[in-house]
């Protein structure tokens, strides 16, 4: 007899839970508010979309003067339209992936679908970070192609320094800013993954383990 058989017998004979709920109590529970991981992943995703959506409005108007000074206004207009089309596309994908989640699916498929919702948001964040890098690159390329002409942009306070010093300081400060931004994002995602996704990733990996080795 297998050692587990006696435990299985104890399992089968285990008494019913002494807190048997009445249908009235079940009704109350069924209509209460969910605090599931999926709900949190959805809420955080929406907050991120809002964050990246409104970030343009938080940038002071003076910043846009750079585009005027560099004759990049058309670039900015075209880019803004493009940016909002991408935002809508991502929102659509995000919502579609979210509504695709079904608890009747098998566990592996379910976790995969939940992670897909999160991935959609991640790709949107990567897209935004890439755009920041791209736009900075365009502005820098424009400025440094003719630094003397754009001296007032890279040296707005009119510091008494020679051009090469100003260029060096400008580049170093930009690099530091990029590193600070990336570290902040890294910490934010470490937190999200730690709190909400560790369990899902772990369980998905556990379910995929044997399939990969076969």
């Amino acid at each position: 007899m297998d050692v587990l058989d006696k435990y299985k017998k104890a399992w089968v004979n285990q008494p019913e839970d002494n807190k048997q709920l009445t249908s009235k109590e079940i009704y109350k529970l069924a209509h209460s508010s969910s605090s599931s991981l999926v709900k949190w992943i959805f809420i955080i995703g929406i907050l991120e979309f809002i964050f990246w959506g409104v970030i343009n409005f938080l940038v002071p108007d003076s910043f846009y003067k750079i585009y005027e000074d560099l004759n990049l206004e058309t670039f900015l207009q075209v880019f803004t339209v493009f940016h909002y089309i991408i935002l809508i596309a991502f929102l659509y994908l995000f919502y579609q992936n979210y509504t695709n989640i079904s608890l009747v699916d098998n566990t592996k498929k379910l976790i995969k679908k939940i992670l897909k919702v999160r991935k959609t948001v991640n790709y949107y964040v990567y897209y935004n970070l890439a755009i920041i890098v791209l736009v900075s690159f365009v502005i820098n390329a424009k400025i440094f192609s003719n630094p003397e002409k754009h001296l007032d942009i890279i040296n707005p306070d009119n510091l008494a320094m020679d051009l090469s010093q100003i260029v060096t300081i400008s580049i170093i400060s930009q690099i530091i800013a990029v590193i600070v931004i990336l570290v902040l994002f890294w910490l934010f995602y470490k937190l999200i993954y730690g709190i909400f996704l560790r369990k899902l990733n772990k369980n998905y990996k556990e379910l995929s383990k044997l399939d990969e080795s076969n």
Partner: peptide, 16 residues
């Protein structure tokens, strides 16, 4: 049978 699946999925994937 349906309940086993939904309840287990909730415990494994939704419950934090």
């Amino acid at each position: 049978t349906w309940m086993y699946r939904v309840a287990l999925n909730t415990a494994i994937s939704l419950y934090r």
